[in-house]
């Protein structure tokens, strides 16, 4: 049977990890490759690298990083952040990324999803959506959640699927950073309306939250950053907990 996936997210700035300070086992907690290897060895099912640097050199630095990760890490990984063209994706996939995630660039120019899935296949196109619930309506936000749009989360997710997205990575701005759990109502609706896998993001604070997002939110995968980086939850403990609760896990 297909398992649910646990995905740590690493924020990258100028080729270095931004979070991830409390790892006593690591020589250099700022080295994304070492952190990625650590997670892979401890049971992570996939990894996501989100590049938040804004320098001119960012594309080159990111491609080099992707190649170093691909050389050493034996699980799949997705790269996102500032990707806006077929050429950007070509470089990243050829450097060894398994998938890319696109966000604001897809909202600004939805045809990008069609272009990427036609050229590289749907399996490597993750459409990331940041959304916030305002007056009962889930509205898509851009630029890391800072800029609101009139787009409805569910309509946009459906359009992304129809245009060829292989997965949806949904981050709830209401939940992100709260450590109060994932946005399971919205996730359940997404999962029901879409035929492609949905990755839950935003709000993980404890192990119960992961259980809830799989059983109530029907998420196919759950992504988190700080609970893993600050060692509040060890991935191996989390997967054993979920498995004991009846969620299919790769252990």
């Amino acid at each position: 049977m297909l398992t649910k996936r646990i995905i740590p997210c690493l924020d990258i700035k100028n080729g270095r990890t931004v979070k991830g300070i409390n790892f006593l086992d690591l020589q250099d907690a700022g080295d994304p490759v070492e952190l990625a290897e650590f997670y892979a060895q401890n049971g992570a099912d996939e990894l996501v690298f989100l590049d938040i640097s804004a320098t001119e050199e960012r594309r080159k630095t990111l491609a080099q990083l992707v190649e170093h990760v691909a050389e050493r890490v034996n699980i799949p990984f997705t790269v996102g952040g500032g990707i806006s063209s077929v050429a950007d994706v070509d470089v990243l996939l050829h450097s060894g990324a398994d998938k890319v995630s696109i966000n604001s660039s897809a909202v600004k120019r939805p045809e990008l999803i069609n272009e990427l899935s036609a050229k590289f296949g749907s399996q490597c196109v993750v459409v990331a959506i940041d959304a916030k619930q305002v007056d009962g309506q889930w509205k898509v936000h851009l630029v890391g959640g800072k800029v609101p749009t009139e787009l409805d989360l569910f309509e946009w997710a459906k359009e992304a699927e129809e245009r060829g997205a292989g997965e949806i990575l949904f981050t709830s701005m209401n939940n992100d950073g709260t450590k109060n759990g994932f946005a399971n109502d919205a996730l359940a609706k997404l999962s029901k309306e879409l035929t492609i896998p949905v990755i839950a993001s935003g709000g993980a604070g404890n192990m119960q939250h992961f259980l809830d997002t799989f059983t109530e939110g029907f998420a196919d995968a759950a992504l988190a950053a700080s609970v893993f980086h600050y060692k509040e939850i060890a991935i191996s403990d989390l997967k054993k907990y979920l498995s004991d609760k009846g969620v299919l896990m790769r252990i």
Binding site: M1, L2, T3, K4, R5, D45, S122, Q123, G166, E167, L194, T195, I196, P197, D220, A221, R250
Partner: peptide, 11 residues
């Protein structure tokens, strides 16, 4: 009934 593509770890 299953989601397509199948993405992830299976036995």
């Amino acid at each position: 009934e299953e989601k397509v593509p199948q993405i992830g770890w299976n036995q």
